Every structure is written in C-alpha cells, then in structure tokens.
Simulated scan of single mutants.
Amino acid sequence: MKNRKVMFMSPLQVQTIEEEYVSRPLGENEIFVKLIYSLISPGTEQAMLAGTESWAQLPLCPGYASVSRVIEAGKGVKDIEPGDVIFHYGSHCEYQTLEVRDVVLKVPAGLELRWVPFTRMATVAFTSLRVSNIELGDKVSVTGLGLVGNLAAQLARLQGATVIGVDLSKDRLRTARQCFVEYTLEADDSVKEKIMKITDGRGVSSHIEATGIPRVGVDSLEYIGSQGEMILLGSPRGVYQTDVTDVLNYCHLENRGSITFKGAHEWRYPVEPDRFVKHSLVRNSLIVFELMQRQKLQIEPLISHVIKPEQAAEAYEGLRINKDRYNGVLFDWSAEGETR
C-alpha cells in the first residue's frame, strides 16, 4: 500500500513523498486511519519549516489537525469502529496509527468535513476566552486576524463582547467582516484614536494579541483601559528590543491602574475532562462541533485553498510570501473519483 506524506526536508524545503506503508499489529488502544482533509497551521508550521523551533528537528512530517476515516480499531477501543469519521490531531500523512487516548473524537453526522480540522484552531482560540474576564457588554480588541485571531474574535463576540479586529491585510479584514466581527481596523498610526472613539475614550477591557509579534503586543498597550488585560494568544517569536521599564511603568502607573498579562497557550488545560477542572481540550472541541453545527461559528470564509498534497511546496510558499491570499489551506487526500 502506497502512503503519501508531506515532509519538511530542511529549512524552507518541502517535498511530498510516496513510500510503501509498513503495517504492524495495532495496540489495544490504537486505531488505523486514512486522512480525508488535513489543515496547515500557518504560524506553527511556518516556524517549523524555517528551522527555528528547537522541538521540531528537520527532516520531519508536520501536521496539526485532521479529519480521517477509521479503517481498523484495536481490541480495547470503545465507541469507535471501522468506517467512523473522526477529528484528531495528526500529521500530513495519508495513513496513520493513532492512540485514542489523544484527542480523537467522532464527527457528528452531517457536519461539513472541510470544517472539521478547523476545530483545532478554534480550541486554540478558545483558551483566550477561558483565561479572560470577558463579559457581556465588554469592548475587546484582537490584533492579528489569521485563523486563530479570527476565531478568537468570533468567540469573544459569542461571549457577548463588542469586538474590534485589527490587521494589516485588507483581505483578512474583509474575511473578519464576513464572520460578523463588528469593527475591523487596518493596522496603522490611527488605530489608537479609532479604538478610543469606539470605546468612548475608555479603551478596551480585554485585548487578545494573536500575531505573536512582540512589538505589536507592546504597541497595543496604549489602547487597553484601566484594569484591563492583555491576553497572549499567539506564541511570541522574533527579536524585539525595548526598555522593559517603560513597558512596566506604563502598566503600573501611567494607565491609572494595572494591566494584567495572561498567557493563553492551549496546553494549559488537560486533554480529557476531569471532575476537578472545568475546561479541557476535549470539552472545548465538542463545544466547537456544536457551534459549527448551529452555524454560530463561521468557518467557510476562512478556507482559502483546498489542494492536493502534491501541491504542498506551493502551499507553504504561498503562506510565507502571500499571506493575504493564503490563509486556511486544506490538503484533500481523496483519490480521484473517491466519494466521502
């Protein structure tokens, strides 16, 4: 059996290879699956491809979120059978063996399969809401309206906030409007003035920083209101030199009250539900399924490309140099003429 997979061979070098799949007996809690769609995570995977992530040594097969069909299940697997369609965290590899103790969830009947891999991006975004103090009637700003930032803006709106999205890209701002984000501002020197006008001079009570660019986070401080909070959703990357004393004094003194910084990395919560912890990755994923089914969470506008894995090099190059056009890129692993 031939197995296709996307490989990062060296920095900025992507290949789609085909090799013979070597099968082995499944463990008690393992399942064997075939990909239907897998989603590129632009931020994480581009950092891996650049060779800047110490935990991702090249060469490797990347991946983030997928929807697959179960071919075989181990003897100890319950509630999942051959033929079931599942959401899981996985690599861009056509055939895979998964542990069901990881995030492996049956997809509700009737849910659009192209949307399913976006569940992972939504649960990443969910963390920004879980750690925040966002309440009904609040004004919330979001810098960076890529997949995660857009979904964070949508979730903040569902929480009852008036949301202000900020991005350099007119295309991403247009997509945010298609997803019902109330205010969309182009990132320029007038952002503070516009946000202060929207908030009647008070500033936002919560700011979600989704770009991962340190300077953007620091610049955002000036439109966070007194007793406000900065939610660090995007993983900070890159070098930025500044006087940290000025930053700390602004939060401590000049803003007439403290600004709280909160980290919102997805892994701060457990994978499985626990009676001692309210939130988990599984619970958040199930809530995302429901929001998608009820069309409360807009996914279709986020899909920019649905392509074959053989076009992987083109996809990653597009994500690197043409971020306005490339955003939500799905690999379609179906064979010609195959039905789902």
Rank of each mutant, 00 (worst) to 15 (best):
V103F: 10
A156K: 03
R69D: 03
L233M: 09
R283A: 09
C61Y: 12
S132M: 15
L297A: 15
A56S: 07
Y223W: 15
N284Y: 08
E209M: 02
C251A: 13
G225I: 13
T127P: 07
A125D: 11
D171A: 11
D138A: 07
T245M: 11
R101Y: 12
G234M: 03
M230F: 09
L281F: 15
V166N: 00
K296T: 05
R130Q: 10
Y37G: 11
L302W: 03
Y240M: 06
M1T: 05
L111E: 04
I224M: 15
A176I: 00
L297C: 14
G110E: 06
V204D: 03
L253T: 08
V239R: 14
Y95L: 15
A210I: 14
V163D: 06
G238Y: 02
E53C: 12
I321P: 05
S226P: 05
R325F: 11
A264F: 07
T175V: 14
Q57W: 15
L145M: 08
P25R: 01
V107S: 00
T143C: 08
V148K: 05
D200P: 07
L26W: 00
E53P: 05
L319M: 11
A73P: 09
G43E: 01
V306R: 11
K278F: 15
E300P: 13
G76L: 13
